[in-house]
Design a protein around this nucleic acid. Structure first.
Lengths: 340, 340
DNA sequence: CTGTTAGCGCCTTCAC
DNA sequence: GTGAAGGCGCTAACAG
C-alpha cells in the first residue's frame, strides 16, 4: 500500500480538526456544520480520498463481499450465471469474490477456506463435479456463514439452493422426441456418481414410463464429459445392433463432441440422428450440426435468484436465525433450434 | 460475521497463554516450545480457526489481492486469460478480485474505485472497448498502485503492458491468403476509434505493401462488433461490384456472425469466400463453417506473463521505484483449421 | 522461551 | 457542533 494514501487522520491534520469530525462530515452526519462539511469534502476529493475498506471491514465485522465458487468460467452457462450474480450484488453494494474450482474438489476446499479467511459475508457455490466429501460445506454451516448452492447441488439436508428442474426438462425433451416419431431414444449421461447424472437418468425413466414406453438400459451410456469420453460413449451407441434414432445428451458440449466424433469417424447411417441436449449454450446458434433442441436452464436467472436469496439471509442474520432451508426449482424450457 | 468465530484471543484464553504466543505458535516461530506449539495448533484446528484476513490486511497494509478487470468472461479468450492469471497468482499466494467491465467505461471507472477502496496491491486490466478517458488509470498511477495492461492497451505513455503483436498476426494472415492465390482481400475491422482497429488497419496496409500489393480502401469496412453490425459490414462487401475472394475479420465472433449472415441471406457466389480471423476461439473447432485460419494470441500466456510482471512490480515496490515501463509483445501464431 | 504493549484506520459512544 | 477515547484482531517491537 503506497505511503501517501490519504486517511481521515491526514485530512484532519491538514484542516486542523479532529478525525471524528472528518468521518462524520464525509458521512453527511446531521450534526456537522455546512461549512466544515464542504471544506472536508473538497479536500477529500482533491486528495482522491478513498475510505480504506480493509479498516472498515475489520471494524464493522462485515465485508460486504460475497464469495462465489463456480466450476469454471469458460462455459457460457456459468459466465451468464456470473452476470446474474454480479448484477444483483452490485445493485446492493456488495463486492463479488469470484473463483473457479476447475471442477476439482481439493481446489474447492482451498477456496472455501480462503472465503472463510477473507470473512466474506456469504457464499454462492455450484459444486465441482467430483466433489463427494461435503466437510467444507458443513464447516461453513457450522460457522453460520450463509451458503446458497446453485445448479449443482450437493446431497445434503437443510441447505438453501436454486436450481433448474431436470425432471421437467427431461420430460420436455422426451415428449418432443416422441412427438417427432422417434422410437429408440438413447441417453448419453454424465458420470454415474454425479447427482446431476442420477437425476437425469431417473427423470429419463420416468418420462418414458409416463408415456408408456419401455426403458431399454442398453440405450443409456455414460461420458466422463471429456471430449474423448463423449466420443467413446457415442461409439458404444454406434456399436449397437439397433442404433438409436434420437439421443438426449447430458449437455450441449457432450452433444457437440458426439456429433463431431460421429462425423469424423464417418459412421454412416446415424448421421442424421436427432440430438436434444441441456444448457442451450449460445454457441449452438452458430452450428449447422448442433442439437435440434436444447433445454434452457436460465443461468442468469438462477444467478439472480440465488444472490437475492443470499442477501435475504444476510439481512435476516441480524435478527433471529430461523433456519428454514429455502429452495426453488426453476422451470426450464425446451428451445427448438431446428424443426427436423 | 458470526459471533463465535474463533480468534487468537479466544485460543489464548482457553489455553491460558498470551495472544502473541498463540500467534507465534501458529506461524512456527522458532522461539516457541514444541509443546506449546502443539497444544495451540491442536486447539486451533479443533476450533477450525481461520486467521482473520481483514485484520491482517489492515495491520500489514498489504492485502495480497490483485484486482483484475476484464471486459467480459463469456469470450473464451478472456476466460483463458483468467486461468493464466489465477494460476500464477495462487501459486504466489495472492487472491484475485475478478470483475467484468462489460465493455462499459463507466463501470470500469467504478471498478477501479472499488479496487482502490479494497486496497488491492496491484491491478491487471484489459480495457473496455469504449474507454477513451484514462483518468481512472492515471489515478492509479498517481497513487502508486502498479498496473499492468493486457491485450487491450490504452494509448498512454509509460505504462506496463503485455499484448500480442497485431502487426505480426496480420502479416501472417495476409501472407497465408496471398499464398493461397487470393487476390482481393477485404478487412472487416472493429470500430474506428478503437486502438485495436487502428493497429489492425495499419498492419493490414503494411502487410499488403510489404508484398507489393495495392491497398483498396473500398475493401475495408467496420463492424461495431455486434451481430447486426457484422452483418451490415458483410452486406457492404457483398454489395461491391468486385466482391472480395477473402476476408480478414477483427476476431472469430465477427467472422462467425458474417458467415451466418451470408448464409442466411443466401447471397450466392461469395459462399466459399475464405475467412481468416483473430483469436482462435476453441468453439471454431466445432464449426463446419468457421474461419479457415485464425491468429492465436495466447491469452493464457498473456495472463501468466502479465501476472508475473505485476508480482515483480509488487516486490520491487519495497525497494526504490525505478519507473521503467515494461512491455512485451508476444508473437502470435496463425493456426490453420482447413487447407481450403 | 513467553508476556506486555502499542498501533494500524475507522466508527461510535460519551463528553463538552 | 465538535473533540477525545476506546476497541475491532492481529503483528511486531520491546521486556522480562
Amino acid at each position: 500500500m503506497p505511503e501517501n494514501t490519504p486517511t481521515l487522520k491526514e485530512i484532519a491534520r491538514r484542516l486542523n480538526i479532529s478525525v471524528s469530525t472528518v468521518s462524520r462530515a464525509l458521512h453527511d452526519h446531521y450534526s456537522i456544520g455546512l461549512r466544515t462539511k464542504m471544506r472536508v469534502k473538497k479536500l477529500a476529493s482533491e486528495l482522491n480520498y478513498e475510505p480504506n475498506q480493509t479498516a472498515i471491514f475489520f471494524k464493522q465485522k462485515k465485508t460486504f463481499m460475497i464469495g462465489v465458487i463456480l466450476p469454471n468460467l469458460s462455459q457460457d452457462f456459468f459466465a451468464a450465471m456470473v452476470n446474474g450474480i454480479e448484477d444483483v450484488a452490485y445493485k446492493n453494494n456488495y463486492t463479488v469474490l469470484l473463483c473457479q474450482s476447475r471442477d476439482d474438489q481439493e481446489r474447492e476446499k482451498q477456496l472455501v477456506a480462503a472465503m472463510r479467511s477473507h470473512r466474506v459475508d456469504g457464499v454462492l457455490i455450484s459444486i465441482a463435479k467430483n466433489t463427494t466429501d461435503y466437510g467444507h460445506f458443513e464447516l461453513l454451516q457450522r460457522h453460520k456463514i450463509p451458503v446458497v448452492f446453485l445448479d449443482r447441488i450437493p446431497k445434503m439436508p437443510d441447505i438453501h439452493y436454486i436450481a433448474s428442474s431436470l425432471g421437467a426438462g427431461m420430460q420436455q425433451a422426451v415428449d418432443f422426441l416422441l412427438k417427432k416419431k422417434h422410437r429408440r431414444i438413447a441417453l448419453i449421461n454424465g458420470p454415474e456418481h454425479l447427482p446431476a447424472s442420477q437425476e437425469r437418468l431417473e427423470a429419463f425413466r420416468q418420462a418414458l414410463w409416463h408415456k408408456r414406453r419401455k426403458y431399454d438400459p442398453s440405450l443409456v451410456v455414460s461420458s466422463d464429459l471429456s471430449k474423448e469420453g463423449s466420443g467413446k460413449a457415442m461409439q458404444q451407441l454406434l456399436d449397437l445392433k439397433h442404433t438409436p434414432d434420437a439421443i438426449i445428451t447430458f449437455n450441449d458440449y457432450v452433444a457437440l463432441d458426439c456429433l463431431q466424433y460421429a462425423k469424423r469417424s464417418k459412421s454412416g447411417g446415424i448421421g442424421n440422428v436427432s440430438i436434444v441436449s441441456f444448457a442451450n449454450e449460445p454457441i449452438c446458434d452458430y452450428m449447422d450440426n448442433a442439437p435440434i433442441a436444447s433445454v434452457e436452464q436460465f443461468p442468469y436467472l438462477q444467478g439472480e435468484k440465488a444472490t437475492r436469496l443470499l442477501l435475504q439471509l444476510l439481512e435476516k442474520e441480524t435478527g433471529r436465525n430461523d433456519d428454514v432451508a429455502v429452495h426453488e426449482l426453476l422451470q426450464p424450457q425446451l428451445v427448438i433450434h431446428r424443426p427436423a
